[in-house]
Design a binder for these strands. Structure first.
Lengths: 201, 201
DNA sequence: CGCACAACTGGTCATCTGGACAGTTGTGAG
DNA sequence: CTCACAACTGTCCAGATGACCAGTTGTGCG
């Protein structure tokens, strides 16, 4: 690519030298999220990344390996804190940023749900999926304990499943309007279990 | 197929005359659930159904139409009551059969999650998906009200999302051990909201 | 500048796929 | 039994796909 930027009328510019691998990872997330696993082909992902299709085999070897790497990439980019005030025990801060996070990164969420389902069929993907679930659950346990809630396994599992379900529905049915009030109700349900009564209501 | 049953050593027998269409629908659910949407091809579904692959085009015309029909088929086969004692208001009966239902029909659950994600990309699938969610939510609202719980939209949405999330995790991560205790905890959280205190603890 | 190596390109090929289609088989009514 | 029609079969074909690969280009070091 030597001085032909003016000739390149595509919406996406070619990645810089040495940036192809990363561009392919991001492209894989986008293609899967928007068109499904079925349409993730060497050519579709290369086109999305604006590189030649042979580069997929060059960097990843196989389609399966691309997917595994893309999952790792997506998780690394989206795992965040479950509270806007980590460690504070403030229930109002718990999951407070979820709706905006999903809105800001719908591709990552959708991609991850696709890959979680794929993990049923691809055992090599499971460690990553399980690790993320476990990480979030431990973080949730800490937050609940900081709030004075006795956080046994069943409660942690339930609360995390509830949020997982809310996000899934937001992503799939595009119903963000009810996510915030539902999270509010979740906090209302948890509040009597905590040692605190901060909210004046 | 005239008297060659002894020669047919395949695990699946060919469907009877006139039963091909139904066999293909069931096969589609199984193939998608076990191998993903990507591997749902005319040939894979026909092989699973033990019919010739041309029959897919004959009955459904296109792969997309097969999927839409299979979703309808799967939903018709799996939508059940959310309580083991419908209308009773008994919180202990609420979602009591869920774990066993998922265990008995993992294919249907997985298939439906695959199709829910697919509905993001295929607007024609959305009415069915939304209809099922709406039906379940209304049923949940009724059960909660029968239990004396003031069932506003946010609470219904939250409770259904929680169960949806639990089922998703059971299906994908194969962790049924925590589903029952989590449902128990969900009921514990709902109990103070009801006008009843039936459980002796 | 030359060189080693990585990144990248785009052609190639065997195989698969969606779907059309002509021919065969099965069913039920008259 | 005959006939109309639906169900079914398996071949065909154009296009797509995963992956390989020889050749080209870019980078950084000596």
């Amino acid at each position: 690519m030597t001085g032909t930027q003016t000739a390149a009328v595509t919406a996406r510019s070619a990645p810089g030298y040495g940036e192809g691998r990363q561009a392919l990872l991001a492209a894989a997330v986008h293609v899967v999220a928007t068109r499904g696993l079925r349409h993730l082909t060497y050519r579709s992902v290369a086109q999305q990344a604006n590189v030649a299709h042979g580069l997929v085999a060059h960097h990843f070897g196989t389609r399966d390996a691309l997917l595994a790497a893309a999952l790792e990439f997506s998780l690394a980019n989206s795992v965040g804190s479950i509270s806007t005030e980590p460690g504070s025990g403030d229930l109002d801060a718990l999951f407070a940023g979820v709706v905006d996070m999903v809105r800001a990164n719908p591709d990552d969420q959708a991609f991850q749900y696709e890959l979680i389902l794929e993990a049923r069929r691809r055992p090599e993907l499971r460690p990553q999926v399980e690790q993320v679930y476990a990480t979030y659950r431990e973080a949730l346990r800490s937050e609940l304990q900081a709030a004075g809630v006795e956080a046994d396994d069943a409660l942690v599992h339930l609360v995390f499943a509830a949020v997982d379900g809310l996000v899934f529905q937001q992503v799939c049915l595009d119903e963000p309007a009810l996510t915030l009030p539902s999270l509010e109700r979740l906090r209302d349900l948890l509040r009597p279990l905590s040692g605190r009564s901060v909210r004046a209501d």
